[in-house]
Simulated assay, not measured.
Amino acid sequence: MNGPALTHRTENGRDEPVLVWRLPEPVLAISSAVLGGGIGPCGWVINGTVPMSYDRDDPADHLAGIAAGLGLSGPGVGLLTGVDVSEVVATQDTGVRLWATVGLGVPIRAAAPAETITPYVGTVNVVAWVPVRLSAGALVNAVATITEAKAQAIRDLGWDATGTPTDAVCVLCPFLENEEEYAGPRSTWGARLARAAHQAVLSGRSAPQPR
């Protein structure tokens, strides 16, 4: 799987960057994204920058419009973030490829006591490619593994946090006959995902943060 292309769109007088993965053939995806979330076929992925003041109540429709404007059709995954996606960090580990846009302007602890949190779109977005077919259970496990590695990196950076209110993950793999059943952090492919995600978040923290 090739990395994303960087393009731009104009919205409300602003020139906003967008990362676009145009996949040569459909793959299997699991995602927590607002557009294309769940498990299913995927032909493209976009990760677009929006202002930190973003408050639209129709982000899925917004992303669908961005995708259509880029000539994308069919099933895909759309992500949004308040960071400049041109600062994407790419890592890899023995066949695994991973891209992260890292915004830690609104760090939180997932199980913090109830409190009012303004969900600005700082966001750590992760898109990962695994070159083997993962079973449904392994896909779920892969998302958990990436999330654990992200939280580890955030703690290693000195933050008393596990992520932001709007983090999203997308894991892609090919449609092949033989399935890998495991993607936990000590499995072959899960360990590679974990290392790639950990390194991406550590590296991304040095990039410019949310505007």
Rank of each mutant, 00 (worst) to 15 (best):
G82M: 03
A5T: 15
K150R: 15
I146Q: 09
N12H: 13
E179T: 04
R195Q: 14
G122K: 01
V34L: 12
V132T: 13
G76Y: 02
P119K: 07
S53L: 07
D15M: 11
V130E: 03
R195G: 14
A100V: 06
S31A: 04
I146T: 10
W99H: 10
P107M: 09
M52F: 00
G204S: 04
L193A: 04
R155A: 14
A144V: 14
D55L: 05
T116A: 11
L104Y: 07
V121N: 12
A60K: 02
F175S: 07
P24E: 07
A64V: 03
M52E: 04
F175G: 01
D167H: 07
A200K: 06
V106H: 04
K150I: 06
P41Q: 02
P4E: 07
A114T: 11
V96E: 04
L139Y: 05
P51V: 05
G204M: 01
R155L: 15
A100I: 05
R211S: 11
Q152E: 14
G103C: 02
T162V: 07
T49E: 13
T81W: 05
R97L: 10
P26Y: 01
E16R: 13
N125V: 11
G158A: 07
N178Q: 15
L176T: 06
P185N: 08
G38W: 00
G43P: 00
E25Q: 09
A64Q: 14
R195I: 06
N12S: 12
L72C: 05
L202M: 13
A136S: 14
G158V: 07
L35Q: 08
T188R: 12
N12Q: 12
G103V: 03
Q92W: 07
T7E: 12
A144Q: 15
M1D: 11
S206V: 02
L157D: 12
P131M: 13
V85M: 06
T116Y: 14
V85R: 06
T118W: 12
R22Y: 07
L80M: 04
W159I: 10
G78P: 11
L139T: 04
A200T: 05
